[in-house]
């Protein structure tokens, strides 16, 4: 029952990608599935948005024009270490994605990916983050 209630909660997600067309449509589709998506079209923009707002999950592109995804991740982890980051990359370089995980990313997905798969991953990350914060409160 508690789980169901939690699922009903609108998860806020920050989508970071320099492919505007992609995150625009992705944001629309996520909104339709009770996920509140905020769009950032570059790494710098994402950091600025993150400074002002709280997010449950960040979905981050690995290769952007202004900043490398891993760099953005490193900064984000300093700003809000509790927010889980999912890498979504069009680049086949799984090594880079794995490197991201070693810097604290939650997981990675490769483009094009099934929307259901992405939502699953977002929820998983959110759940994880919830449990962790709970754990830390108890401690």
């Amino acid at each position: 029952m508690i789980g169901n209630r939690k699922e009903e909660k609108i998860i806020s997600v920050l989508l970071v990608d320099d492919e505007k067309g992609y995150i625009n449509v992705l944001a629309n589709r996520l909104s339709k599935r009770s996920i509140n998506a905020t769009k950032a079209y570059s790494g710098g923009e994402a950091i600025q948005i993150l400074r002002k707002n709280d997010f449950d999950v960040v979905v981050l592109d690995l290769k952007m024009e202004d900043m490398d995804g891993v760099e953005v991740l490193k900064i984000m982890k300093k700003m809000a270490p509790e927010v889980p980051v999912i890498f979504l990359t069009g680049h086949g370089s799984q090594e880079a994605a794995r490197e991201g995980i070693s810097f604290g990313a939650f997981d990675y997905l490769t483009k094009p990916c099934e929307l259901s798969e992405l939502i699953e991953k977002i929820k998983e990350a959110y759940q994880c983050q919830l449990e962790e914060s709970k754990g830390s409160h108890i401690e």
Partner: peptide, 18 residues
């Protein structure tokens, strides 16, 4: 090339999904 193609394909698939 794969990277360049993956992004537009992802957009196409998502748009279709939309």
């Amino acid at each position: 090339i794969a990277h360049e193609i993956n992004n537009p394909v992802a957009i196409m698939v998502e748009e279709a999904g939309w």
